[in-house]
């Protein structure tokens, strides 16, 4: 492992403090400024879509150094089916369960 325990603790504490600052931000500011500027609010509403998409897509498809798209069929199929389940049910557990089930099934067949 490239990081020693002290570095890992440092990362945990730093991210913990930043996250707490995010959570506290407007809770503490409110009363001093009475309303969140609509501009800021609209931008923040877009954050989950941006961050989560950037986390999900590269886990399913990758780009080879040649520029070719690399995608393992079991992962692509599992992700597509899981996305359908997420859309219909908005249930995290069902999404994970169906996605893993399809991954194993297609992996066994291919």
């Amino acid at each position: 492992m490239s990081y020693d325990a002290t570095t890992l603790w440092g990362i945990v504490v730093a991210v913990g403090l930043i996250t707490l600052a995010h959570r506290l931000s407007f809770v503490l500011l409110f009363g001093r400024i009475d309303d969140v500027p609509p501009r800021v609010e609209r931008t923040l509403e877009l954050v989950p879509a941006a961050v989560l998409a950037a986390l999900v897509v590269p886990a399913v498809v990758a780009l080879a150094p040649s520029g070719a798209v690399v995608a393992a069929p079991p992962k692509v199929i599992a992700a597509a089916v899981a996305a359908g389940v997420a859309w219909r049910t908005e249930n995290v557990l069902a999404t994970i369960a169906v996605g893993m089930g399809v991954l194993w099934l297609v992996g066994a067949l291919v």
Binding site: P48, A49, L52, A53, L55, V56, A59, V60, K75, A78, A79, A82, A83, A86, W87, E90, N91, V92, T95, I96, G99, M100, L103, W104, G107
Partner: peptide, 20 residues
Amino acid sequence: GLSLEFAVPLTFLALLVPSL
């Protein structure tokens, strides 16, 4: 062999879809 690491993007996917 269970590829459990794939559960991680699936978790994010479950949160992503409703946000779209």
